[in-house]
């Protein structure tokens, strides 16, 4: 177990290093550099700015400096907002993004799994067809369409919820719904097919042959095994919620990291783009690690094979 964890942490470090390197060189491949784009600066001012941010140094030195500052958890200053650090930008947006993201994950698990179970247990009867119809809608309709349409219907037309902001608790409804809609549908479809497959397994017949009660059979033998694939997608869920938050925070005017990121793109604030990307990647990797550990805990077969590999 310890060995496995160490191996995973090592992999994470390698991946993160690859991401930082890739991001750094991608951002420095932008023609012209950060101060060329809009206003024509006097050459001496541009030179002074370049010197201030270390942009006059050779690229490999800039790269080493950047790696160094990241190692001390400093993502550097913003190019567009003098005096503002990327760390403070992230710190300002994190609570909003974290709140909506966590609520969305809770919704995915708390709604997606039960709906899938209901569908599987009522295979080809109306609860199944209804759930699967809605889930197909949910998988097909892009999150920003769900967001805008629900914004129009529930906020503008019916006035049930505020159109933007999180000051009111009802303000959480639409962003969380739009963020989690796809994954609730996805997870319910996955749970359904996985449970149906599990129900056909021989060990389910064994469980019935033991005379176990239906509830025991379903929860102890059926669900535990059929939830394994669901756990695997929780990693991608987190990744998707992150990218989903770009548009959702934009549409509902939520001051989170996603909106900050889109704003940085529009502003061509390269250090901010770079910093937020790396921050996201790090968060994701931690999440994926947690999910993998959860998986190992759920499925005893993994322990041996992975640790041996």
């Amino acid at each position: 177990m310890i060995g496995y964890l160490a191996q995973r942490l090592g992999m994470m470090a390698v991946t993160l290093f690859a991401i930082i390197t890739l991001t750094f060189f991608l951002m420095h491949a932008v023609p012209g550099g950060p101060f060329v784009s809009e206003r024509m600066l006097a050459p001496e001012i541009a030179a002074a700015l370049n010197a201030k941010y270390g942009l006059d140094l050779p690229i490999w030195q800039q790269y080493l400096n950047y790696l160094g500052s990241i190692a001390s958890f400093d993502l550097g200053p913003s190019f567009k907002y003098p005096g503002v650090s990327i760390n403070s930008m992230i710190a300002a947006g994190l609570p909003v993004t974290l709140q909506t993201g966590l609520l969305a994950i809770i919704c995915v698990v708390a709604l997606g799994v039960p709906l899938g179970v209901i569908a599987a247990l009522n295979r080809n009867r109306w609860p199944d067809t209804t759930v699967m119809f809605i889930a197909t809608l949910g998988v097909a309709i892009p999150s920003y369409v769900i967001a805008t349409v629900s914004l129009y219907v529930f906020a503008l037309r019916l006035g049930w919820v505020p159109t933007f902001g999180l000051d009111d608790w009802r303000g959480y409804f639409l962003p969380v719904f739009a963020l989690s809609g796809f994954w609730i549908s996805f997870v319910s479809r996955l749970t359904r097919s996985s449970l149906l497959e599990t129900l056909e397994q021989d060990y389910m017949t064994t469980a019935r042959a033991k005379g176990l009660k239906p509830g025991q059979i379903l929860f102890k033998h059926g669900l535990r095994n059929s939830l394994l694939p669901v756990v695997t997608v929780l990693g991608p869920v987190v990744a998707n919620l992150v990218t989903g938050s770009f548009v959702i925070e934009q549409i509902f005017a939520l001051p989170g990291i996603g909106r900050q990121f889109v704003l940085s793109i529009t502003n061509r604030d390269y250090t901010a783009i770079m910093g937020i990307t790396i921050f996201y990647a790090a968060i994701l990797m931690v999440m994926i690690l947690i999910v993998d550990l959860l998986y190992v805990w759920l499925d005893p077969r993994i322990k041996l094979t992975k640790a041996a590999a």
């Binding site: 991001t23 990218t243 783009i273 996201y280 990647a281």
Partner: peptide
């Protein structure tokens, strides 16, 4: 790696 992020970076 969160790939959508990289599509964004590439587009930038």
């Amino acid at each position: 790696i969160p790939l959508t992020l990289y599509v964004v970076l590439l587009m930038v």
